[in-house]
């Protein structure tokens, strides 16, 4: 790791100012991705702006038809939250499947969403539920937030403060994980909401994406059998040492069926 300066602001505007005023500075939330990146010298920022002292970014609040999760809330807290377990059990289940217990102690929802790793779990939940990303400047709909490989709609100096999830009628998540890293080889989040069904896939391509044919089929019949025959085009899917694109395409259908099963159980 190259040396860097370390800032721990206790106000969001201060954090934003540090981020914009110091060229080549980076935000650090739980650090579960960033620290590994620094160790491999894939990044060498001159300064880190640590968000852990921003108390207002932690915690889960009940908004009736919505649940708002502060950006610095660790995965373990979301997984164990009675509120999330009761209102969006699929989201609590997703959080409980991220990494391992030690990673879940430190890793945060804001960090995961901002990083937009193509195999991370949260982007599937955020897009699948049609959540809203609340930042220091504005609110961004999930459909407009994830732009591709590690790319998001976040602008310079913009900090995610919370994610607001609508409470669905039903929702479920299923993933086939890479055994060593526990990242999603393919993960599918399915949500039945008031105006239809949303299906979001992570791990299969360069970024999280929706599957309109599955959404249409599940909207008329919310049952695994409705999507059993729907195949995903392998164009644009990832092929790497873990799996070829056609295997990932196959897994999308299998995991989507399991996610519907999970939502129904």
């Amino acid at each position: 790791m190259k040396p860097f300066a370390y800032h721990q602001p206790d106000q969001i505007p201060d954090a934003a100012r540090l981020l914009t005023s110091i060229e080549d500075s980076k935000l650090v939330a739980g650090g579960m991705t960033l620290i590994s990146t620094l160790k491999q010298r894939l990044a060498s920022p001159v300064a880190l702006v640590d968000l852990s002292k921003l108390g207002s970014l932690k915690g889960i609040t009940d908004g009736g038809a919505t649940i708002t999760i502060g950006a610095m809330t660790p995965h373990a807290v979301v997984a164990a939250s009675k509120l999330v377990q009761t209102k969006i059990p699929g989201l609590a289940a997703l959080a409980s499947m991220i990494g391992d217990p030690a990673v879940r102690s430190r890793g945060t929802i804001g960090g995961s969403v901002a990083n937009n790793d193509p195999a991370a779990d949260y982007p599937a939940g955020v897009l699948g539920l049609g959540a809203t990303i609340v930042t220091s400047m504005r609110e961004i709909a999930a459909d407009k937030f994830f732009l591709g490989l590690f790319e998001t709609a976040l602008g310079p100096g913009e900090i995610i403060t919370a994610i607001r999830f609508p409470v669905p009628l039903k929702a479920g998540y299923a993933k086939f994980k890479a055994p060593a890293s526990r990242y999603a080889l393919v993960g599918v989040f399915v949500a039945q909401v008031a105006d239809g069904v949303r299906v979001a896939v992570t791990g299969a391509g360069p970024g999280v994406f929706r599957v309109p044919p599955m959404e249409a089929a599940l909207s008329s019949n919310f049952d695994p059998s409705a999507i059993a025959a729907i195949k995903i085009d392998t164009d644009g899917l990832t092929s790497d040492i873990h799996a070829e694109a056609d295997y990932r395409a196959h897994l999308v259908t299998v995991m989507a069926k399991r996610a519907v099963d999970a939502a129904l159980s």
């Binding site: 650090v28 650090g31 579960m32 620290i35 030690a102 102690s105 430190r106």
Partner: peptide, 23 residues
């Protein structure tokens, strides 16, 4: 040293964390 093996786990404020991936 890549936060996969867990040989470095310690408790930070009572929670298990991987000390090789903690500043």
């Amino acid at each position: 040293d890549t936060s996969q093996c867990g040989a470095c786990v310690v408790h930070l404020d009572g929670l298990p964390v991987k000390s090789c991936t903690l500043l």
